[in-house]
Design a binder for these strands. Structure first.
Lengths: 103, 103
DNA sequence: CGTGCCTATGTAGTATTCTAGCTATATGCT
DNA sequence: AGCATATAGCTAGAATACTACATAGGCACG
């Protein structure tokens, strides 16, 4: 029985960043400073593992704001459980979580 | 001209942790939650690049406290410069630095 | 109308990180 | 002695992250 998948420090940081309201790749890159070559493959893996879900923004909306379409992510129930474990394991991630709910 | 070496997010976190007063491997593992297989190789690389220096604790002192000897690290001048760049690049690392000096 | 800049996502190949283990000293339990 | 726990450092091989680059639409400049 497969103890739920454990996240690397970087993956946990990305997941917590989504939880804190950054809902698409570019926003996560901006908030964390991580490069696209880290963020996008990590998002894909976490989606495959069922920790996050995604949907594309309608073309209309993107066109109206004159920019490319965004792919939005949200944390699933399974993802929230794994994130909770990561907050205990990685103090920095735990702190980010506390700051979100805390103030 | 070799722009000074850029650090990964994890390496920057380790360097900042040393700057904040965690001076040996086990202490860094504890403060960050990172595994030994991340911390020790990273310390070695950063020492090779001249970002940190190290020295072994005298056996006497370790024996007196009934534990194995520790290898202490400190941030060099070159390391401090690279760290400063990393604080700008990675918001989380910058925040750790601010909390150290700030409050 | 070509070049550069901004947003946004994505990929190939290399470098780093992580999992799972090991070495070693000391303490305590059975 | 044998086993477990704790501190401390380290390593091999698999998994992940990073650098550098690519794609693509819209905008501005000259």
């Amino acid at each position: 029985m497969n103890g739920s998948p454990k996240l690397s420090h970087t993956a946990a940081l990305i997941l917590q960043t989504i939880e804190n309201g950054c809902s698409y790749g570019f926003d996560i890159m901006d908030a964390t400073g991580l490069p696209s070559g880290t963020v996008y493959p990590a998002l894909r893996r976490m989606e495959t593992e069922g920790l996050i879900g995604s949907h594309w923004e309608p073309d209309k909306k993107a066109a109206a704001q004159q920019r490319p379409a965004r792919k939005y992510y949200r944390v699933t129930r399974a993802g929230a459980q794994v994130l909770e474990q990561s907050q205990k394991r990685y103090p920095l991630v735990g702190r980010l979580a506390a700051e979100k709910s805390g103030r």
